[in-house]
Amino acid sequence: MFFYFIKRLFLVIPIAISVTVVCFSLVYLAPGDPLSAILPSDASQELIDRLKQEYGLDKPIPVQYAIWLGKAVQGDLGTSIATGRPVTSELGRAISNTLILALFGSLIGFSLGVIFGTVAGYRQGTWLDKCVTAVAVAGVSVPHYWLGMVLVILFSVTWNVLPAMGAGPGGDWVWDLEHLQHVVLPAITISVIPTAIVTRTVRALVADILGREFVTALRAKGLTDFGVFWHVVKNAAPTSLAVMGVQLGYLMGGSILVETVFSWPGSGFLLNTAIFQRDIPLLQGTILVLALFFVTLNLVVDLVQTGIDPRIRRA
């Protein structure tokens, strides 16, 4: 087990390096000069050269990458071209806002998914099971940005019970009623995909476990239904938790659409701004941090699952 952990940690390094290469190369996918966004069209050659030198764009590309990576490792992701502020400080607040949203979304998704999945797994083939399956299919098929709009139409426009925009006053997360009200609609919107996926997973797991011989044996020896249920939980937990962990990563990286609908001041919103202002350092930085978060989370999920599930023997 210990050696598996070490091996897994070493396998992540090449992936992380490749991620930095992909993020860095995004600049060269972009048409035109990275500076074109801030330069006036009639800028003198002298000015262009000076700015290029300032941003390090006059050096060969591998050197630029090495410098960029060297700074990124030290937590310096450059300066936002549009605002002139360091990318790291812009990112810090946005990422924590996205994390709050993603955590609420995961909490809702995991709770609902486990309840739906367990009920459907226990009542296979009944109308209840069919309803749950229908909800799960709808959950992965619904364009969630549209669902967000529908929720706004219902709860903010028609009934006027919940706010439609933003994360509450101040822009930073505070644990109070007003901020909680602001997170309700975006969190529900973002939770539909994990709800559907956790439901499917748990349903399949519960159905599979209930059909196994050891469950029959447990029942035969007179164990109560609750006692059997505890065995089901123990057997289904590692995989369900792992699925939810991976979904949290998808929520973090995929929140851009929901954040746009609700003007949630998170990393997706920042990404959107970076794209439309052609702010390349901000774009690179945001994608790098989100992708590295995703890689790290997947690593943690894998290690935790290996650690808590005695059935998994990895060498």
Binding site: I15, A16, S18, V19, V22, L26, V27, L29, A30, G249, Y250, M252, G253, G254, I256, L257, L271, A274, I275, L283, I287, L290, A291, F294, V295
Partner: peptide, 14 residues
């Protein structure tokens, strides 16, 4: 290593 939405947005954004 990239969530699919992020990858799609990053590439088409760039």
């Amino acid at each position: 290593a990239f969530p699919s939405v992020l990858l799609a947005v990053a590439i088409s954004g760039a």
